[in-house]
Amino acid sequence: MTEAGRSHFWHSDGRRLSGLSTLLLLLPFFTIIAFVFVYPILQLLVISILEPHPTLDNYARVVENPVHMRVLMRTLWTAMLVTALSVVLGFPVAYYMSRAKGTVAALVAVCVILPLWSSVLVRTAAWSFLFQRNGLINSALMSLGLTSQPFKLLYTQSAVVIAMTHVLLPFMILPIYGALRSIPNDYGRAAAVLGATRLRTFLEVILPLSLPGVVSGSLLVFLTALGFFITPALLGSPQEMMISTLVSKQIREVLDWPFAAALVGVLTVFVTLLAIIFSKMLRFDRLMGNAS
């Protein structure tokens, strides 16, 4: 390799990368993606229409069976609910983190990030302890005299939604925090000196400028929630299955790979559509000028 060719590699000064260095930078990543993501998905989709013989029957079974459609709708609804809850719970935390300094702020940041270091399984198991008939929540309610009988909390859809929101909350908080942090302090000051109250400053300036963070956080949480497996499997009711549980059942118990593949296919179509809509929204936001 020539000196000139070599010099193309290290562009910390922001010069454009040459074709070769672009390739070398991205090749490992795309190789992995191709083998562990694109190939299996394509394989599944192929199975869904070619086995046992070329047919769309597998898809017909998904769409025509109201039970399966209900599972799909429940999954979408749960993911939406979890996303909405995460926005409502996460935005104030992100807003606080972006404003605050000092010990309390550091503590909050640790509380947001630390759970990411423990596994989803551990956090879900923790919730199942809390939700048990004689778990912490029920004993607290009963000792406060708010109820005489323990509530059924474990194995309900509410338990799933609560636990999933908890697990996914950091993925909402962090992008919103990032967006809020990138808003210069002077914007708030400018709004104030121009006559805006704190509320109007928030509504007219801070909130619109933080929307890209809300959108990417929502995308992250929603898409992850759609395919969530452990939490629904451990905390959900068998009568109210989510699609990941259904797929796993088809594969491991019924051994009906083509049908499981068709379920994944339908979900993929939904996800793709939603991703397109979301990215349109993101680009719309960039048009609104997040450049400066």
């Binding site: 400018a190 000196v193 619109p208 609104m288 000028g289």
Partner: peptide, 13 residues
């Protein structure tokens, strides 16, 4: 009061 900042601070949206 009117105020002009160093970095323009026009609201980008």
């Amino acid at each position: 009061l009117g105020m002009v900042f160093q970095n323009y601070t026009l609201f980008p949206h």
